[in-house]
């Protein structure tokens, strides 16, 4: 990359940061809710809910108590549960807001007050979980669970959490050719972002805006001098079953050649109404011989080639 390009990129980045900060500061609306009457402070809550309070102390959420969020110092409990004076007086559960008993949407909006933009590219509101009304507290322990964690971090525990609902997906990992999730080497979250993405099936992105698969398979990233279109247009799932398959290399077909030929079989290509990409199969390939049984025996660079248009090297 030329020095000039680098300089322009840096300049763009600096300008973006400055503009963003200025814009954000201009738009900031002070949070004044905590100043309203009816708040009693966390120490009062602790009187009856000491165990919960002690757990909360060990979690990142306790930062609210010590002023991480302006206006909520010493009111961390009420930052989610709302004013607690009435409840403190009556000791009735009906007199306090319990996010765990709200509808998922209402629970989400409580959490998103602070977490709208954290590690949720594009926002939680468009995720599959949001559409299916799976609230934040389905997976997250707001007060901290065993180990004072807000959520599971071990790969095996993450997988166990996801598989509670995603039974079919987890069953696919019983197949012989699969990613190494049952072995605990990977977790569902290595590929999926449960909060939200705009890729299909909440697939993660990597290296800016590339498909998440490339995080580990970065040799397939390119850009290649000679691209193989399905890699870019439909992604890895055009040919592979990422959760597991009975077919080698997690392919979608039992014979590798059929994976290729089902696309490379256009005769009337391209028709104006419904053009299909894929071309025609080369007629001189005689599939009756062993040599041509597997297309990738010769077309070794099937993910894209730096050297050859026919993906032969």
């Amino acid at each position: 990359m030329s020095t000039r390009c680098m300089r322009n990129s840096c300049l763009q980045a600096v300008c973006s940061v400055v503009a963003g900060i200025v814009l954000a500061l201009c738009l900031t609306i002070p949070v004044a809710a905590a100043e309203s009457p009816g708040y009693v402070g966390s120490e009062t809550c602790k009187t009856c809910h000491e165990e919960i309070y002690n757990n909360l102390q060990k979690t990142p959420h306790f930062a609210i108590e010590t002023g991480a969020r302006k206006g909520w110092e010493k009111k961390s409990c009420e930052s989610c549960h709302g004013p607690g004076a009435k409840h403190a007086e009556s000791a009735s559960a009906d007199d306090i807001r319990n996010p765990a008993k709200l509808t998922p949407v209402e629970t989400d909006h409580t959490c998103l007050t602070c977490h709208l933009n954290q590690r949720t590219p594009g926002g939680r509101i468009a995720s599959g979980h949001a559409k299916d009304q799976v609230g934040c507290t389905t997976c997250h322990f707001v007060h901290g669970a065993a180990g004072a964690k807000l959520v599971e971090h071990k790969k095996s525990e993450i997988n166990a959490r996801c598989s509670t609902c995603h039974i079919s997906e987890w069953a696919a990992f019983n197949r012989p050719y699969k990613h190494r999730l049952p072995e605990g080497a990977m977790s569902c979250m290595d590929c999926h972002n449960p909060h939200a993405t705009f890729s299909a099936d909440t697939m993660r992105t990597s290296f800016g805006n590339e498909p998440g698969c490339l995080q580990c398979h970065s040799d397939k990233r390119g850009p290649f001098v000679f691209e193989h279109a399905p890699m870019r247009l439909e992604g890895c799932v055009a040919c592979h079953e990422p959760h597991g398959s009975a077919n080698p290399r997690m392919l979608v077909r039992h014979e590798q050649s059929l994976v290729c030929l089902e696309c490379h079989s256009n005769v009337s290509m391209p028709s104006a109404q419904n053009a299909k990409i894929g071309g025609v199969p080369p007629a001189f390939h005689d599939l009756r011989t062993s040599r041509f049984q597997n297309c990738t025996v010769c077309h070794v660079k099937v993910h894209g080639s730096y050297v050859d248009r026919e993906l032969l090297r």
Partner: peptide
């Protein structure tokens, strides 16, 4: 490659939430 990513989210009103993202990258081989 270099890439620039901007993510924004806002609740300008109690009845509205807006989120957005823009990513630009320029890979070269």
């Amino acid at each position: 490659s270099v890439y620039t990513k901007v993510l924004g989210a806002a609740n300008p009103f109690s009845w509205m939430t807006i989120t957005g993202q823009f990513v630009y990258e320029r890979p070269h081989t």
